[in-house]
Design a protein around this nucleic acid. Structure first.
Length: 444
RNA sequence: GGUCCCGUAGCCAAGUGGCUAAGGCAAUGGACUGCAACUCCGUGAUCGCCGGUUCGAAUCCGGCCGGGACCUCCA
């Protein structure tokens, strides 16, 4: 399988560092607010990455952090007259709820900055010891000039960066590009350290946690493209300084989600929170996976709506097939995998193998829908239908889509049979009443 | 100002050197149907514009137009 590596800018054949295991880390949210639909994109996409690796038989050690201390969390805490910890707890809970809503697993290791403070401090100390960082007045800065190819990930040159850099009011820095490792402060929560009372900068947490948890470089590091620079660039710089490696073999970055073709902006009123999305979340998940993960994706109500309807269509044929077999007491029938189904499955997997081309994978899901609708209406095809359902289950598992269909109850079946009889007897009044009942139960 | 990305039918979107440019939505014609819903079958684009490279380009190169991102907290 081939994955696009942001570090090399090329598609690369995936080779795990440790046989049958994938170690991956995805930059998680800063927990000062509910997540918006743009935050949901990596939550959904990297969940699919994990699912696909698991489908392929790998054990996936999936880690994604919570940034539970930084300026925003502190500001929010002061605003709401809460402790930083309370703010973090509140929005971590909310995050888990939203992640579950959009169909992503929440069962993974989620380290928090506050839990790794000693690791972060010692990481910074080691950087100072080796001359890659310097202390000024209780602040600690990373010395970018010590890193030979700083800018390698984001494809920037130090000269270009300097030219574009704002006039830095912080005269403490040796170089405007140097970034903060430790910030001296007396606002909000602080920790004691050898450099003084303060709190860590944003860029060390991920490297320190990865270093602690995985003990060495990992297979995949993921995140949104907008944090490629400076965050990921700075992570690499620190790891190079101490560990002489790039943290991850493969760096993956998802494109941004825009609203009405513009970047989300709270101040301009262009921001939608996941919890406020008043639709079937599976439709939203399908929407985010309908564009290749590296491309930007545009949100409008209309576009989302078309994917919600698409999801209903997918779910409908699955449900109808499932109930068809259930009514025939054939849910456990042995499947007959036809050539068509084999071809659809093969193309689906080919798409996933090609840098997680979920857009093409979804096309195959749609081909399966069409095939199943045709099969559903032909006679004596229960075995093929069973095979189709099995394939749906496989696709759903990989994409993280859940149709929410379970076997019918005895009373459901009785009504269904009665409806069928009424129609055969041309008792349409009765049939319509029974049909309403079945609709109310969500069976038709 | 610097760096970079994108522009495929009304809409979403795949394809990044070679069979007739996938698929979906919408629209429209037909089939099915007690009615309706559902579903199935059919119908649409020469790929922003101009020029170049090539036997051959949506795919490579150059210019132009349009949109966006990053360079500052941001998934």
């Amino acid at each position: 399988m081939r994955i696009f590596n942001s570090l090399s800018n090329h598609l690369e054949e995936f080779k795990p560092m440790h046989k049958d295991t994938v170690n991956m880390y995805v930059c998680g949210p800063t927990v000062y607010n509910y997540i918006h639909i743009g935050n949901a994109r990596p939550v959904i996409f990297f969940d699919v990455v994990r699912r696909y690796f698991e489908y392929k038989g790998y054990t996936v050690n999936f880690v994604s952090n919570f940034t539970d201390v930084d300026d925003k969390v502190i500001t929010k805490a002061i605003e709401d007259e809460m402790e930083e910890k309370e703010v973090a707890e509140k929005f971590i809970d909310a995050f888990y709820k939203d992640a579950a809503r959009v169909g992503s697993s929440t069962k993974y290791l989620a380290p928090r900055v506050t839990e790794y403070m000693s690791s972060i401090i010692s990481y910074i100390e080691r950087l100072i010891d080796k001359g890659y960082a310097y202390t000024v007045d209780g602040d600690v800065y990373f010395r970018v000039s010590k890193i030979e190819d700083y800018g390698i990930l984001s494809g920037r040159k130090v000269e270009d960066l300097k030219e574009g850099a704002r006039i830095d009011v912080n005269v403490k820095k040796e170089n405007p590009l140097d970034f903060t490792l430790w910030k001296k402060t007396d606002v909000g929560i602080t920790w004691p350290s050898p450099f003084g009372e303060g709190r860590p900068g944003w860029h060390t947490e991920c490297v320190a946690m990865i270093n602690d948890i995985f003990d060495g470089p990992i297979d995949i590091h993921g995140g949104g493209s907008e944090i490629k620079f400076p965050h990921h660039e700075n992570e690499i710089a620190q790891a190079k300084a101490l560990e002489q490696h790039n943290i991850a073999n493969i760096w993956m970055h998802n494109g941004q989600l825009n609203i009405d073709d513009k970047k989300m902006s709270k101040s301009e009123g262009r921001m939608i929170l996941v919890k406020d999305l008043n639709v079937d979340y599976m439709g939203f998940r399908l929407f985010t996976l309908s564009t290749h993960y590296r491309s930007p994706i545009n949100y409008t109500d209309e576009i989302l709506d078309s994917y919600v309807r698409e999801w209903q269509k997918i779910r409908r044929v699955y449900k109808q097939s499932f109930y068809h077999l259930d009514l025939a007491e054939s849910l456990e029938i042995s499947p007959e995998v036809t050539e068509n189904l084999k071809a659809i499955e093969l193309r689906f997997m080919d798409a996933m193998d090609a840098d997680f081309n979920t857009a093409n994978a979804i096309t195959e899901l749609q081909n399966l829908v069409k095939y199943t609708n045709q099969t559903l209406r032909s006679k004596n095809s229960d075995k093929a239908l069973k095979a189709a359902i099995d394939l749906f289950d496989t696709f759903f598992k990989i994409l993280g889509l859940t149709p929410g269909v379970s076997p019918l109850t005895a009373s459901d079946k009785a009504i269904y049979m009665a409806w069928d009889d009424a129609r055969k007897n041309k008792d349409f009044d009765k049939a319509d009443r029974l049909r309403d009942k079945l609709n109310a139960r969500g069976i038709l």
